[in-house]
Nucleic acid binder design. Structure first.
Length: 278
DNA sequence: AGTCGCCTGGTA
DNA sequence: TACCAGGCGACT
């Protein structure tokens, strides 16, 4: 669920609460959620750790701690990290509790238990983090970078957008949205995009992510920010999760299909520039 | 490149 | 009851 805009929103809402704070004690309620080291070492290593800064990389949240270690969090499908100013009874599916000095708690809640937390001296030893591609909102993500990445790739453009080693942070929602804004069929082979289409896609990726951040993320079901607040971008989605509803551009019914194993929503009129089977 | 497994809950 | 879900890694 949390894609780039959601993790960015979690980061922004939590850094206000965590600035200058120290983690006093950590209680791991479900050890399987800890990616490493052992749950015991994870908890012990976080005790009395001052928080220096929060960062986001792709869909990862990184909490940098005094002493050089980093708490790395991936929310996967249903993970959330919510701050409580006063001690609060853990909600159902709470997996880890971080107690802060001076009062307040962070609860990591994850219904499906797909999320992972790591405590690492060197985050680059986590291969899924080290192998991430470019940050789409940073300057280094240029039209030329996108052009070179698509060149000679026969894979469907939607699948490539979801490849975290190429672009870090797009998930199923924002990939669908970017392709609609760019007017591209999700199954169009990457190498078949014209220079003009690459330019449109480049702008569309940036725009949908920026809009998502502006609206504090998309809450289709589970996502909440660091203060427990829903996002608003679900009210602005063009195609994603809107099968059967009219396209906001032309009114044609949005179609839902399966592309690269993922549920995919698109407008057959605005995004028909690739004819399946040709 | 496609499928499965990991988990739980919501909806048809 | 069956199928679906915003992710991702392992496997074929």
């Amino acid at each position: 669920l949390p894609e780039l805009p959601e993790v960015e929103t979690i980061k922004r809402t939590l850094e206000i609460k965590l600035a200058g704070r120290t983690i006093r004690e950590v209680v791991v309620l479900f050890p399987g959620i800890i990616g490493g080291p052992s749950p015991e070492e994870f908890a012990a290593g976080l005790a009395d750790a001052p928080v220096l800064a929060l960062r986001r990389r792709g869909k990862f949240l990184l909490v940098e701690l005094a002493g050089g270690k980093t708490l790395v969090i991936h929310f996967r499908m249903t993970g959330r990290l919510v701050y409580h100013a006063v001690n609060t009874a853990p909600a159902e599916h709470t997996r880890v509790i971080f107690e802060l000095t001076g009062g307040g708690q962070l609860h990591f809640v994850d219904t499906r238990k797909f999320g992972r937390l790591w405590l690492l001296a060197d985050p680059s030893t986590l291969s899924s983090l080290a192998r991430l591609g470019r940050e789409p909102l940073e300057e280094e993500f240029t039209r030329e970078f996108l052009r070179l990445g698509l060149r000679r790739r026969g894979t469907k453009i939607k699948s490539l957008l979801l490849d975290q080693t190429f672009i870090a942070g797009l998930g199923n929602i924002y990939a669908d949205e970017a392709l609609h804004l760019a007017g591209l069929h999700p199954e169009k082979p990457a190498r078949d995009l014209s220079p003009g289409e690459v330019g449109r896609l480049h702008r569309a990726i940036r725009r949908v992510l920026e809009e998502g951040i502006e609206h504090h993320g998309t809450t289709l079901r589970d996502y909440l920010d660091g203060t427990g607040t829903k996002g608003r971008h679900q009210d602005y989605l063009r195609v994603h999760s809107r099968a059967g509803l009219p396209c906001p551009v032309c009114g044609t019914r949005i179609v839902r299909a399966r592309v690269g194993g993922r549920s995919t929503h698109f407008c057959p009129c605005c995004q028909k520039d690739y004819e399946h089977g040709e």
